[in-house]
Amino acid sequence: MNPDFIGRSYPPSAPYLVGREKVREFARALGEIDEVYFDVDAARARGFSDVVAPPTYAIRLSMAAAENVVMDPDLGLDYTRVVHGDQRFEYARPIVAGDELVATVTIDGIRSAAGNDILTTRAEIRTVSGELVVTSHSTLVARGSDV
């Protein structure tokens, strides 16, 4: 990979509108039982504007945005060998249905270890009006082709 890409930011992703049914579907897939993820009135009674997305819902935004990075031919990452190494979210607040979000990805690090290429990215997930909601840190590992 090209180390000159450290610090590079990519243009923000297209706005993603968080749908109420999509939140419910995601919560159901994780077996969530708390009504805050399903019931609008329950969510509002607890101070949220709409149903709350489970914490890992943020990956939808960051992974879609990271795809542009991973697929960038100038970066030189072999995306067919990429696995998700680790993941961290910093939450300013939970994502809720109705949020319209954009993700801006920056390359935080590029290194090689044990024959693997390791790429760390940071995606800032903001509302279209600029409010920071979640920062997602992902480490992607391209496994060495000789193993």
Partner: peptide, 23 residues
């Protein structure tokens, strides 16, 4: 799934500030 141990215990999703792991 793993974070449900925390969120079900917290009973308030806005209290989660940071969550990370290695696969």
């Amino acid at each position: 799934l793993a974070i449900r141990v925390v969120t079900d215990w917290l009973d308030d999703p806005s209290r989660l500030l940071d969550y990370g792991c290695r696969f």
